[in-house]
Amino acid sequence: MRLPIVSLMLLASLFAGRVMALELGSPAPALEKVTWVKGAPVAVGKTITVVEFWATWCGPCKKGIPHLTKLQKTYGDKVAVVGLSSEEEDAVRPFVEKMGAEMDYHVGIMDQEASQTYMDGVSGIPHSFLIDAAGTVVWAGHPMGLDKPLADVVAGTFDAKRYSEVSKLEDGIQELVKGGVNADNQEEIFTKALEMTDRILAIDAVNANAVQMRMAIAQMKEDKGLFRAILEKLPRDQLGAEQANELAADLATKEDLAMRNLDLALAFAARAVELEPKEASYIDTRARILCELGMTERAIALEQQAIALEPENKKLGEALDYFRTVEKLRAGLTEAK
């Protein structure tokens, strides 16, 4: 079987940058040689801090900006969210100014050499570090997996031993896939990766990286039964709103129609809205899935709710227009019968 290139890239990148010089439990380096572009300067060890390294040219970084903004708004003064780039100021500052309120957290430009105190050994961005109020690095990885450890640190329930075990397993997965996946070694790698992600999920039942890895493997194996089983096994009551919405949106837009599992997509979307009923983007996701299912009247009603929450969001208005067009077509076809 010829392996999809995009899936291979996803498989290799989920745990990229796990092996690094800055170990968990280490004191966080000071945020020195930083030109602050937005917000007041931040010093680690004063409050819980999220430090994310990003760039204006990085697609996944840009996609994650609303997520970081949401985290900053959710936790307020309890957490300082910091985005650091090592690009030139004339690239970063206009980008941040254009983003406006969509990028509503501390943003700085860190000297390239200084940034290596964090990023030495890390192979890709975006990459986040979670630092507790004592100034200790307690978690690091792709920001997709940040929500649960951050919530635990804020609540005072963070289990360092538990997350250390997960980190070691993630390091093992990176070692497993770094040499590449091909027709000769794929079954062995898939089997080992599924076993290792099983162990991660036994510790952290909704670990975002492990879930995405398992989904990617199921897609590469073209195993629709395995793909659905992975999703069904997820404890929905433990999913955070962002992760639930990401799963819903991802399922609803799968190119392979047999992988869409719209019933599960709708359930994940409902979970996101249940947790954050005033988040317009989550309502929009749910509305889009309902439209896909032919429930256009309900989709229209939900999209109107989303627009009421964010009246300036043009994409929501475009979605509403589309739903109304679909409803007119549906009504016309019904009358034609």
Rank of each mutant, 00 (worst) to 15 (best):
M1Y: 11
M1H: 10
M1I: 07
L3E: 07
L8K: 07
L11T: 05
L14N: 09
V19I: 14
A21F: 03
E23T: 13
S26C: 00
A28Y: 04
P29Q: 00
A30N: 04
V34W: 04
V37Q: 02
A40I: 00
P41Q: 11
V44W: 01
G45L: 07
T47D: 11
T49P: 03
V50I: 14
F53A: 00
A55V: 06
A55D: 09
W57S: 05
G64L: 15
H67T: 13
T69I: 03
Q72K: 04
K73L: 08
K73P: 00
D77F: 07
L84H: 07
S85T: 13
S86E: 15
S86D: 12
E88I: 00
E89I: 14
E89G: 03
R93A: 14
V96D: 01
G100N: 04
A114E: 10
A114N: 03
S115M: 13
T117A: 15
I125H: 04
P126S: 05
F129C: 08
A134T: 14
T136H: 08
V137W: 00
V138A: 03
A140K: 12
P143K: 01
T157W: 00
F158C: 02
A160M: 10
L176G: 05
N185I: 05
E188K: 15
E188N: 12
F190V: 00
K192N: 05
K192G: 04
M196T: 15
A205Y: 04
A205F: 00
A205K: 10
V206R: 07
V206S: 06
N207V: 04
N209G: 15
A210N: 10
Q212R: 12
K221H: 00
E222G: 08
F227K: 05
F227A: 01
K233Y: 04
K233N: 09
L234T: 07
L234V: 10
A244K: 02
L251P: 06
A252G: 12
M259E: 11
R271C: 04
E274F: 11
E276Y: 12
E279M: 11
S281K: 14
I289D: 02
L293H: 06
E297Y: 13
A299Y: 02
L302V: 08
L302G: 15
E303D: 12
Q304R: 14
A306F: 06
N313P: 10
K315P: 09
A319N: 15
L320R: 05
R324E: 14
T325A: 15
K328H: 10
